[in-house]
Every structure is written in structure tokens, then in C-alpha cells.
Amino acid sequence: MKKINLFPEGSISKVIGKAIVLKGDDIDTDRIIPARFLKCIDFESLGSQVFADDRKELNGNHVFDKKIHEEASILSVNSNFGCGSSREHAPQALMRWGIRAIIGESFAEIFYSNCLAIGIPCVTTTKQQVEDIQGIITKNSKEFWELDLRNKKLLGSKNSWNVEIEKSTQEMLLNGNWDATSELMSNDLEIQKITSSLPYINNFSN
């Protein structure tokens, strides 16, 4: 049975772990978790179903099935990762498989915010650097990596790279308020003020 680290909690400034490469542009959330697995009322069982169809097709040869990657927690992807459906089941499935951070050339927007909402940082770097990083991970899957969110660096055993992260995302992760519910609820008076300023709330009745 694969050992899963604790789910993200509180302030997140670093992710340390082994890495895994999933190559390909425009990998959509239907591929990350096919729709038939969305027939559930919790997220518990999604970890084993991540990339279900791709894994079945490759019959044990998919990177997510290889024993050498089973402890990986940093995922390296290419461009427009997570496009398509807004299903949070996609980052939930990745998280429950063991992923705690994703580095790529670019991310689809809803996927990116779904990752943030569960404490998974998505950081970006150039196409060339992504390819360099992926080359090193592929050569030595046992290497440990450190994603330093405060200093926006990805550190390998010999190299380090600058990475990009949206300022608001960085602050929310560092401050530990990426789980936004409490902060949003705390502005009660301001919410009431906006509510009463919008005429459509009462369907324009006087």
C-alpha cells in the first residue's frame, strides 16, 4: 500500500520530495480524472483513479504506475495543464496520489485556483527550463527537490532555477489563508453593504 503524506495544512513555504514528469501539452481534467469517477459524494477514493484511462492503456508503464515514482510529491508538467472541466476532483486525485506541488510552463485557470484552494502550489517557468528540469528528473528519479515558495526557487542537488508564482497565490500559501472560507466570512459588514447596494438582489422591487 502506497504511503501518503499528510494533506496540506496551514502555512506552506516549502515542498520537499522526489519528482515525477508527466509530458504533454493541454492535458485536460477529463484525462486526469475521467467523468465516471465523479459519481461519488466524497473525494476519498480518487487517488487510485488518477489518469485511470491513460494508465490502463499503458498497462503498468504509465509514470504514475512505476514503483520508482511512488514516493514522488512534485509533479512536472508542460503547458496548459488542467484545461477543460472545472472539476476539483482532478487536483484532489493528484493530491490523494501524493502530489504536493506542480511545476510547469502554464496552467489552466480554474485548475490553478482549485489547486490553491487545497494548498497545492502551481509554479511556472520557461519552456526551456521545464525541459531541462524534466531531463534531470528523468535521469535520476531518486533525487530530492525543494520548492522554496518564499524565494521562488526550485532547488535540485546540483542546480537551482527561478520559478514564477502569482503574488496573491504566494502570499496566501505563505500566510496559510489559501483555505479562504474564514477570511471571506470575516468581512460580514462589507458583504452586507454590497448586498444592499445591488438592485437585482430584490429583483428591482422598491
Partner: peptide, 9 residues
């Protein structure tokens, strides 16, 4: 569109 954590929010 939003994800489930945002639906909660």
C-alpha cells in the same frame, strides 16, 4: 466556473 472548495466558500 469554480471548483468544489470555492463552491463551499
Amino acid at each position: 466556473g469554480i471548483g468544489t472548495s470555492q463552491v463551499r466558500d
